[in-house]
Each structure stands twice: as structure tokens, then as C-alpha cells.
Simulated assay, not measured.
Amino acid sequence: MIDLVLSQLANPFRIGLLVALVFTMRKTEAATGRIIPLIAGVVFVAVILPSTLPDPTGSLTEQILAGLVSNAIILAVVLAGWALATRLRR
């Protein structure tokens, strides 16, 4: 399971989707809020990637659970980078 999480953490497509999720959330934050879109996006990416690009190393359920963990880690890094960039601009 740890190998699966590590391989997902290095997936550039997953990283790109989560960076785009944060940019979209920042643009629509006034209308949709912050928490619900982020949770929905993390779950969506965790389910859609293994469904469309299956990895033969684990079952679909394992891939989705590992995706939730890796997405949360990537999202935390992206949000921390966004907060740092915002602070440095002020």
C-alpha cells in the first residue's frame, strides 16, 4: 500500500489536476466556499484516475484509498505553497 501511495505522489497528472483544483477553488471561492469544493475534488481525482488508468499492482479499492491519502498530501503541499506565495506578495 505504501508503494502505491508513493507512486501516486509522483504522478504528474495527479499533481496537475490538484494544482488546477486549487486555482479553480481560489477563483470560485466567494460563490462556492473552500472546504466542500476541495473535498469533492480530492475524492473525484482519487476515483477517476484509477478508474480510467488502472494500475495492475492493486485492486480498485486499494487504489482509491491510496489516492485519497496521496491527494490529501499533495493538496496540503499545494495549499502551503499558495499561502506562502500570498504572504510573499504582500
Rank of each mutant, 00 (worst) to 15 (best):
A72Y: 12
R90P: 03
V43R: 03
I64V: 15
N71Q: 10
T86K: 08
L21E: 00
T61H: 09
A72G: 15
V42K: 02
L53G: 08
R87D: 15
T86D: 14
A80K: 14
V22F: 04
L9G: 01
R90E: 14
P54A: 11
L9V: 03
V47I: 14
N11G: 03
L6T: 05
T52M: 13
L84A: 13
L38R: 06
M1I: 11
L68P: 06
Q8H: 02
T52S: 06
V47T: 04
I74G: 06
L79Y: 05
L9D: 03
L65T: 13
W82S: 11
I15H: 01
V77Q: 05
I64P: 06
F13W: 12
I74H: 01
L65P: 02
A85N: 11
V19T: 03
G81W: 04
E29F: 04
F23G: 06
A46G: 02
G16K: 00
A31N: 10
D55R: 06
S70T: 07
E62Q: 13
R26H: 09
M1N: 11
I36G: 12
V5C: 05
I15M: 01
L75G: 05
I74P: 02
P50W: 03
P12K: 00
I74Q: 03
V42P: 00
R26D: 14
V22D: 00
W82D: 14
V5N: 01
I74D: 01
L17F: 09
K27Q: 14
I64Y: 10
A76D: 09
I73C: 09
L49Y: 04
V45G: 00
V19Y: 00
V45D: 00
F23E: 08
V19K: 03
G41Q: 05
M1K: 11
V42H: 04
R90K: 15
T86P: 05
L17A: 04
F44Y: 15
L49S: 00
T61W: 14
I36L: 13
L49W: 02
F23K: 01
Q8A: 04
L17C: 06
L60H: 06
L84M: 12
V47G: 00
A76C: 10
I36C: 12
L53A: 12
I74W: 04
M25L: 14
L17W: 04
G81C: 09
T86G: 09
V47Y: 07
A83Y: 15
A30Y: 10
A20F: 05
A83C: 14
T28M: 15
A66L: 09
D55M: 08
P37S: 08
L49E: 01
L38V: 15
G41C: 03
A31S: 08
S7Y: 06
G81H: 08
P50L: 05
E29A: 14
A30N: 11
A20R: 03
V19R: 00
L88F: 13
